[in-house]
Amino acid sequence: MKYLNKTPIKYLASLFAITLLLSACSNSQNSPIPKAGSNTHTGGSGSGSGQHHGGQGGSKGQGNNNGYYDGQFGKGGSGSTGGKNTVLLNQKIIYFTYDSAQISAEGMDILAAHAHYLSAHPNKQVRLEGHADERGSREYNVALSLDRAIAAERVLNLKGANANIRTIPYGEEMPAVLGHDESAWNKNRRVEIVY
């Protein structure tokens, strides 16, 4: 069973900074912040330098807001862009609003980063695992989660991913977070990028 993928702690701070930045530009419902607590056991020794690195990534993201959103990252190949790309590559989950398969702006950025990586690594097998929150009917949610996975697949292909991609719809069967409230639902409406 796949739940929230583990993110190395050294990227947590940068993830957090960028997520905050993105949240400022969109509905907070669309931008669940991954819980740091679930990742604490993934690598304690690196956490000191990781915090530092993350802080840098975050501040650069802030300083280059427009570039971030117009899809310019990954083209320049400068040090700072590479850093952001790495940060985005470590985001393996994109989130959705209720009963929607529309990819958010941050989802676009995450998928573009993965597409860029995959275009350079053409033999990767990619699974896009779609999920829905528990509201509404069970089988409709499977179809909705397929729509989400296919929307993500389309973006990966449009952005140049050259990979064998499979879409797997799980509906509401495998929640990332247990619970029956808005905060749990926000984290469960998602596509996980697995490769």
């Binding site: 179809a143 397929l146 296919i150 499979r166 879409t167 719809p169």
Partner: peptide, 10 residues
């Protein structure tokens, strides 16, 4: 009876 690519549902 059905294991087509993508979804086999309902």
């Amino acid at each position: 009876i059905s294991s087509r690519v993508g979804m086999n549902n309902a």
